[in-house]
Amino acid sequence: MQPVISVKDLTKTYASGFVALKDINLQIQRGEIFALLGPNGAGKTTLINIICGIVNPTHGRVTADGHDIITDYRAARSRIGLVPQELSTDSFETVLSAVKFSRGLFGKAPNQTYIEKILCDLSLWDKRNDKIMTLSGGMKRRVMIAKALSHEPQILFLDEPSAGVDVELRHDMWEMVRGLRTSGVTIILTTHYIEEAEEMADRIGIIHKGEIILVEDKAKLMDKLGKRQLTLHLQSPLERIPVDLTQYPLELSVDGSQLTYTFSTRGEQTEISDLFQRLAQHGIGFKDLESSQSSLEDIFVNLVSERV
């Protein structure tokens, strides 16, 4: 299937000489939710801005729904909606006129019914005649989403959508994003809230210092790079791990009271029952146990720190 966004050998060097993107190659599949993760200054916003036409690329080619963003920019841009990171709004405009303006800007004829639906979906209908400057930060974020959706885009970029948004709105937004995906919209989001990517994304891309260091299906990524840990609280402290148990990835706490067993999330865990039998043979009993699994955040931090 043809990707809805295709980025090939994309490079961006700013006039100052700063290289923001280095040979980026990326394909976004139609209808997926793709989360682009990366630390501050990694190049996430530059990448989005190039795809949306806000920043000129230095080298490389980008297509949106098969249309080149430079040579066929009208077709490419008409398919894209963007919710930028900054809360950039026309403060003196009303919600309704701002959203109508966005629809017109993207070449769509006025459609009162559709605009009303968007505003209702985002709980903005009651505020439609309010000036944007009178709204809270969360409501302004909703207005920006409404503006981005006003021209019925097939691809929606959400650049840090949860920045400065309270928990309730964040969950509302997640629901809305899922609803958009169900209706066939492809979502690309950047976020600092890795919980957000873990909650919503189908695939994860990690960008660091202008380079894509990983693109993977979220479930596979969690499976491949995720770790589980089993911690045993021992009945009696151990001085050291018995020699014939060193074949297991075990770690003894400093005070000898806890034994931690680290294993992959992949495959069947027959090794655990073997370990328990061997511990029993050595007379090592435990009074409690707990298990934990690494989050996407742990994976992200590990991957990025490996590169530093």
Binding site: N49, R74, S78, I80, P84, D90, F106, G107
Partner: peptide, 14 residues
């Protein structure tokens, strides 16, 4: 100044 230029630049407009 307000940052809303992003919308003009990302629109399918010559």
């Amino acid at each position: 100044f307000s940052g809303t230029i992003y919308e003009i630049l990302s629109a399918p407009i010559s």
